[in-house]
Design a protein around this nucleic acid. Sequence first.
RNA 1: GCCGCGUUGGUCAAGGGGUUAAGACGCAUCCCUUUCACGGAUGAAUCACGGGUUCGAUUCCCGUACGCGGUACCA
Length: 509
Amino acid sequence: MATDKKVRVRFAPSPTGGLHLGGVRTVLYNYLFARQHGGDFILRIEDTDQTRFVPGAEEYIFQCLAWAGLEPDESVKQGGAYGPYRQSERKALYRQYAEQLVANGQAYYAFDTPEELEQMRQDFKTEQNPSPQYDHHVRDKMRNSLNLQKEDVDRLLQDNTRHVIRIKMPENETVGFNDMIRGDVSFNTSLVDDKVLLKADGMPTYHLAVVVDDYLMKISHAFRGEEWLPSAPVHILLWKYLYGEDHMPRWAHFPLILGPGGKLSKRDGAKYGFPVFAMNWTDPRTGELTEGFKEKGFLPEAFINLLAVLGWNDGTEQELFSLDELIQKFSMDRVHSSGAKFDYEKAKWYNHEWIKKLAPADLTQRVKEVLTAKGLSISDKAPLQKIVELVKDRITLLPDFYDQTVYFFKVPETIDITAVRPKWNEAKQLFFAELIRSYELMSAWDAAALENDFKEIAAASQLKPGEVMLPLRIMLVGGKFGPHVFDIAEILGKEETIQRIRHTLGLLI
RNA sequence: GCCGCGUUGGUCAAGGGGUUAAGACGCAUCCCUUUCACGGAUGAAUCACGGGUUCGAUUCCCGUACGCGGUACCA
């Protein structure tokens, strides 16, 4: 296996729907590996199944990568020297390789119809073998160029009879390779079926396409999810037959990201209330919307971070990593071989940490976008950054900023009056009347002075500060939440503060 | 069924022949805070099971169990 050539890796999604967690993590590990080695990261569109074409899915993938900050060096969009980057546009390339295999006796034409295949599965189905494969046990009982007379095959071909090309798996050979994560992995070829390489419509299957394209695009390292491990022997053999094992990329199969039960699916997300896709995805056929991490209120920095450590860690106690740090520290041999269950609680913690970690000005800008999108109009004069700094400790998801800051921009819609009424009395009524008088006379309007005044008046009124602190909070904020109440008052300003106290006082009479 | 890959607290996980088996999330209790958070403290694992190898296995080997993945003219 060539390890000295330039590092070129690829992510090859099929544009059939939303891009989920595992996909983005695969992108991320590819990206990190490429950046770390000064290599190229290629995005190739695997759209060989025309029946599964979904409009918009390809564009959506690009949007997700752009949001996550993991943009490819070569792709349909960026271009590059190894295009086209969409397999449907490479259709003409594949047939010759399949034919070459047939000519060498490593593959064969199969004319079986879908019905005949179904029949075969019925006929050979037993309790011991519930899903019969098209393999060396059955291939000589089927309609293919292995057992048809040559003239018949030629005639069928000439008549353009629908057919596929299947690989002829050798019997009882051991095919193995060294996985960068799992070490040596091997398979007995007798147990692998004769996978279709070229479909009846002339399109390659994944198996042929991945090998041909990886070769043509000079891919040095091929990374993908563990679900591909069982078909690896087919790919290894294809490499051996077509281009020589020496040219084969190094493989790594990433552990699966699991949901509460098995492979994480968008169903899990819907069921347990957490996003699975990177960004919102609306199925154009059903109109069904699946929520994404972006829209849920995740920072791309946090998303990247949590994905990176789902299956990898640097061996220290560090948990927060920026993209740049990941590029520095990532290493394939510290990637786990076992699957990891996705933990939404921890995912939210990462977001919370990143909200605290982001530069204030940067965070403020993003919060402004969220608030604006929620319909708040925020004047440029508003001390937004100060407000954001004040509340960010209690935020996990970006939209939380709305609830935690609306009262700075609008009079609270509801006042939780029931929280104060039971313990309300004349002494408190008088206290607030006095407080208003005092506040109106204040010249320096700052939190410390406000608190000082407040406490002095409380003492003079024979009240403990705590007894009137909560009512003040309710008056200004509307509920039992938010940062230090005098900090809020300071930002609200004299007029607004007094106005709100008066208003609630009126409600309490 | 068969094939493959896995198995350290509820979750993510460090460690890797001799350790009090890190740390984080979550949970519980407590402290701080006259709101909610932040912060701090404390608590919870016979390292799946059974055999080896060894003076000694969580760590190495072999089985078993369990989990997951695959078993399509889908990727």
